[in-house]
């Protein structure tokens, strides 16, 4: 395989919390804690986790919408975190974002033509005379008709708005897309339409995609490879088929077994985790998952597990992965 399009090394993003008498932060939350992974050209990688896992912050840090604290993000061979804003602008065109909420992410005062023209105007890719044709073409790619141009977001259903958001992201011909929960706000029958559309676009345009979701069934369906996060750290990463067939981390196992299955014969065989996700302000020592892990021993409290390859392409951050 050729060099990855995106390579994330030891990415750490912290947020200050609270403030003392002098207005200085009292503590730091490690929203993303030493996260490393890469995405090959044309690959669709799923980033899954529950609330507070840091999956959205990873996506935003890669796009520099949130300033990472340390680590490196290399895109097409360039370290984009060290670029000046003016130099980063060219990369911003190549890296686009699709949002979760199709109701909040489209400006209600602009018509669809105005919404999709905005990135064209910012990145000056095309003479203005050609915008209209390009917008019609983009609408066609996402399954809408050119008549949509003169209409406003409120005239569209959730699924149609998500298609408009996708058309806007594609307007400047990106090679990399971060899709943050792109189908989570949609009805099931509409979710399937949008998932199929994303798969088609990815294949037809040769897009590389980081697909962020809390829904394990959605990422299993859509992605080639999965990265599982918990409390800001990567627990496990593997090819999709391998991860779902042989999950090695106790968290991944519990997560997969917790997903309600349509298969009536698979009802009731569950690993039910005890307790809640701990407070990120005061994370557990050692392995962050140990407070809920059925296999935790005293070494798990002392030592922080590193992400290590257990078999080719399959890495796990668990001290006891070999025994259990």
């Amino acid at each position: 395989m050729n060099a990855p399009l995106l390579d994330v090394r030891d990415l750490t993003t912290t947020f200050p919390v609270g403030s003392n008498l002098l207005g200085r932060p009292k503590a730091k939350v490690h929203a993303v804690d030493q996260v490393s992974f890469s995405v090959a050209r044309g690959e669709m990688v799923g980033l899954v986790g529950e609330s507070g896992s840091g999956k959205t912050t990873v996506g935003r840090s890669i796009l520099r919408l949130t300033q990472p604290t340390s680590g490196a993000v290399s895109f097409d061979g360039t370290d984009i975190l060290s670029l000046k804003p003016s130099a980063f602008q060219a990369y911003r065109r190549r890296m686009q974002l699709i949002f979760q909420d199709p109701f909040a992410s489209l400006d209600p005062r602009k018509n669809i033509e105005g919404i999709i023209a905005e990135p064209l105007s910012i990145h000056r890719l095309l003479p203005r005379a050609q915008w209209r044709d390009r917008i019609a073409e983009l609408l066609g790619m996402v399954g809408l008709t050119p008549e949509a141009m003169k209409r406003y977001p409120h005239e569209f259903s959730g699924g149609q708005r998500q298609r408009i958001g996708i058309a806007r992201a594609l307007a400047v011909k990106p090679d990399f897309i971060v899709a943050d929960e792109p189908v989570s706000a949609l009805d099931v029958s509409i979710q399937a339409q949008v998932l199929n559309l994303l798969q088609d676009l990815q294949a037809d345009l040769g897009l590389t995609m980081l697909f962020i979701s809390h829904d394990l069934a959605v990422v299993e369906h859509a992605c080639d490879r999965i990265v599982v996060m918990y409390m800001g750290r990567i627990m496990e990463t593997a090819n999709t088929a391998d991860l779902y067939a042989n999950p090695r981390h106790p968290y991944t196992r519990a997560l997969l077994s917790a997903v309600p299955s349509l298969d009536l014969d698979r009802r009731r065989e569950k690993i039910i985790l005890k307790g809640d996700i701990p407070s990120p302000i005061n994370p557990p020592s050692g392995c962050v998952f140990r407070t809920r892990c059925p296999h935790a021993t005293e070494i798990c409290a002392r030592e922080r597990p590193v992400l290590a390859e257990a078999s080719p392409g399959h890495a796990v951050a668990c001290l006891r992965a070999g025994e259990i």
């Binding site: 029958s189 979710q191 399937a192 339409q193 998932l195 199929n196 798969q199 299993e220 369906h221 349509l262």
Partner: peptide, 22 residues
């Protein structure tokens, strides 16, 4: 058939799993 992970999914000509969208 719309649900990801459903037993009613199918593979398309490229061999990818597809959902039967309504």
């Amino acid at each position: 058939a719309s649900v990801p992970g459903s037993p009613f999914r199918f593979r398309d000509a490229r061999g990818r799993l597809r959902l039967q969208a309504i």
